[in-house]
Design a protein around this nucleic acid. Structure first.
Lengths: 110, 110
DNA sequence: CGAACGGTTAGGCATTGACCTAAGTATTGC
DNA sequence: GCAATACTTAGGTCAATGCCTAACCGTTCG
């Protein structure tokens, strides 16, 4: 059973590759088939398929096969995992800066 | 010369490892020395140093050596790169959903 | 000064990741 | 039915990653 950290792990790992990020960038504007997605890339199809698998595994995209074509689409909850972690860090960071500022202010005007 | 995609690449790659994320999580609450950061991890120091190098390379942290201790601190612009990319995708995604909604609405009440 | 401390460098080994080619399977169109 | 289409599976290479131990360097303290 994958815990939260594992999930975040896979999402960031998936986003760490430029090919996969370009796929996401393509999918935000709407669903597409395997070969549509593969077309812009100078890469053998099996290699490209692996990237799609990584994305699907990370929960960033979903796919469905109908006939002989498979269609992919974005799965926003996947991106949420990454955004969530980043937002958490920023929250703590800003809270700390606030405390620091308060501390410095009090020090100056006691 | 690293372009934008390379930078985003390194940031996501850096964040893809749980050890490195825990270091960030530690650093958001304030600077710390190498050994302070290393202490919670059951790992040889040289191995841990590599993680710190990855984080610094990605621009997520900065460090400064004084005497024999090196102090690390968070560098928020690094996290911005990741947040920026994610925010861009969400923006396009939401714009597309809006257009889709408009399309469906018009179709229903022409 | 000399030992202990904090960090660094060098090198090695195992696993994973990104790519490939070749050969499959399951639709679909003529 | 047979060929083309759209993916899939199997296997193989090569570089990058994550970890280790051993040995080293500069700083501080008794």
């Amino acid at each position: 059973m994958p815990n939260r950290s594992d999930r975040v792990d896979e999402v960031f790992k998936a986003l760490a590759d430029p090919t996969r990020r370009r796929v996401i960038e393509r999918l935000v504007s709407g669903p597409a088939s395997t070969s549509d997605l593969a077309e812009p890339f100078d890469m053998a199809l099996p290699s490209f398929l692996q990237h799609l698998k990584v994305l699907e595994n990370a929960g960033l995209v979903t796919s469905e096969k109908s006939g002989r074509t498979r269609t992919y689409q974005l799965s926003p909850p996947g991106l949420d995992a990454a955004q969530g972690w980043l937002a958490d860090q920023r929250r703590v960071w800003e809270q700390r800066l606030d405390q620091l500022e308060q501390f410095l202010t009090r020090k100056q005007t006691p």
